[in-house]
Amino acid sequence: MWDYTDKVRDHFLNPRNTGVIEDANAIGEVGSLACGDALKLYLKIDDEERIVDAKFQTFGCASAIASSSALTEMIKGKTVEEAMKITNKEITAYLGGLPQQKMHCSVMGQEALEAAIKNYRGEEVEEHHHEGQLICKCFGVTDELILRSIRENNLTTVEEVTHFTKAGGGCGDCLSDIQRLLDEEHGKAAACEVPEPEPRKLSNVQRMQLVVKTLEEEIRPNLQKDGGDIELVDINGTEVIVALRGMCSHCPSSQLTLKNFVEGTLREFVEADITVKEVS
Rank of each mutant, 00 (worst) to 15 (best):
G187W: 03
R121V: 07
T257N: 07
I51S: 00
E124K: 14
V240W: 13
Q255M: 09
L145H: 05
G169D: 02
R151D: 03
G246T: 08
R151C: 01
V161T: 07
K40A: 02
A26G: 03
G96M: 12
P221R: 07
G19S: 10
D10L: 13
E131Y: 00
E278L: 14
H250L: 13
L210N: 03
E278W: 08
S69I: 14
A243Q: 12
I178S: 01
G96A: 10
E152R: 11
T92R: 03
A54G: 08
I146K: 00
P221N: 09
Q101D: 07
H250K: 10
E185Q: 06
C251S: 08
V107Q: 05
C105Q: 02
Y42W: 10
G168T: 06
N154E: 13
V240N: 14
G31H: 00
V161E: 02
V125R: 08
C136Y: 00
D229T: 06
D173R: 06
S67W: 04
E82A: 15
C192N: 09
A26E: 01
E131Q: 10
E217W: 05
M108H: 04
S67I: 07
D177A: 13
K201E: 12
L98R: 08
F269Y: 15
T214V: 12
V161S: 06
T165M: 04
S63G: 05
E217Y: 12
I86R: 03
H11G: 04
